[in-house]
């Protein structure tokens, strides 16, 4: 299109409504297909948990021909120790891990981000180095240490390290977040007579809900889903977590109860889903630093 009077040439990209509609439909079809691929295994698991035992592996459909909650009843009570015990154990370990990680990591991060102390850079570098160590590398020395402390077959090896700020990833995450909070807030609190502890507790923590929620969500999910740690340290069935409990449904020497396994697998997802649902609100709430001018 040309504008003769101004000597300018204006190019406009006109797309016909039909072509636009076809593109939209194709995009949606592709997205729905991808979603089905992602969701199918989960939906199949859900369907299998409600199928009668003999139908589980005979159909690829995600709608059972008949509905039954037998797998849930059998799964919950079918083992020597009820599944309720496993859930309780998992809740204790995951809950304490969340509290420990959030408190200890935030304290360590506050020190690195806001306080001055001798060797700060060195210790920060050391902390970052722990991120590069695979879990398996420290596993044996840790096991030897905890065994000598008499902690094997207790929850302590799974929980106590969380209270010692042992998770470098969360410390690093929080350090970065705390560094973004205006330093003047600390200084104003200092003028108000606050000690470093009160600045941490009354000023920094309340302003850090997004990063604390992130740490809480991931700690909960990772601890709840952890199979290896409990496998190493917990040997008695009454102290098993949900993940160890699920393994007992499959038996390489005898008959496996897949119905019970699928039903309990579905139930094991519920706490994670609810935890995420509750804390994701805090994640997106963002931080209100509008008391500052910038």
């Amino acid at each position: 299109m040309s504008d003769a009077s101004s000597g300018l040439t204006v190019v406009t990209g006109v797309v016909s409504p039909t072509r636009k509609r076809i593109t939209t439909v194709l995009v949606h079809v592709a997205l729905i297909a991808a979603s089905i691929c992602m969701l199918y295994p989960l939906l199949w698991l859900l369907a299998a948990s409600f199928r009668p035992e003999n139908e589980i592996f005979t159909s690829a459909s995600i709608i059972p021909s008949s509905w039954s909650i037998d797998s849930y009843i059998r799964g919950w009570n079918g083992l020597r120790t009820g599944f309720g015990t496993f859930f309780t154990n998992s809740f204790i370990i995951s809950g304490l891990s969340v509290v420990g990680n959030v408190l200890a990591c935030s304290m360590a991060a506050f020190a690195f981000a806001r306080l001055e102390f001798k060797g700060k850079s060195f210790w920060f570098a050391m902390m970052l180095m722990t991120l590069m160590l695979p879990y398996q590398v420290t596993l044996i020395p840790q096991y030897v240490l905890f065994r000598s402390l008499g902690w094997v077959n207790t929850f302590l090896p799974l929980v106590v390290p969380k209270f010692l700020a042992a998770d470098g990833f969360f410390i690093f995450l929080m350090v970065q977040f705390f560094r973004g909070l205006p330093k003047e807030l600390d200084e104003a609190a200092q003028m108000d007579g606050c000690s470093p502890w009160r600045i941490y507790w009354k000023i920094i923590l309340p302003l850090s809900t997004p990063v604390l929620a992130t740490a809480a969500i991931f700690t909960f999910i990772w601890t709840w889903d952890d199979f290896f740690g409990p496998l190493i340290y917990l040997s008695e069935m009454k102290s098993y977590t949900v993940m160890l409990g699920l393994r007992t449904f499959t038996d390489s020497t005898g008959e496996s109860d897949f119905g019970g396994l699928f039903a309990m697998s579905v139930l094991s997802l519920v706490p994670i889903f609810l935890f995420f649902l509750f804390f994701q609100r805090l994640l997106i709430e963002g931080i209100a630093t509008t008391g500052m001018k910038r």
């Binding site: 003047e184 807030l185 200084e187 104003a188 500052m292």
Partner: peptide, 11 residues
């Protein structure tokens, strides 16, 4: 002290 950035506690 009154700070340049006000430094009011946002929460």
């Amino acid at each position: 002290m009154v700070f340049q950035s006000y430094a009011l506690y946002p929460h």
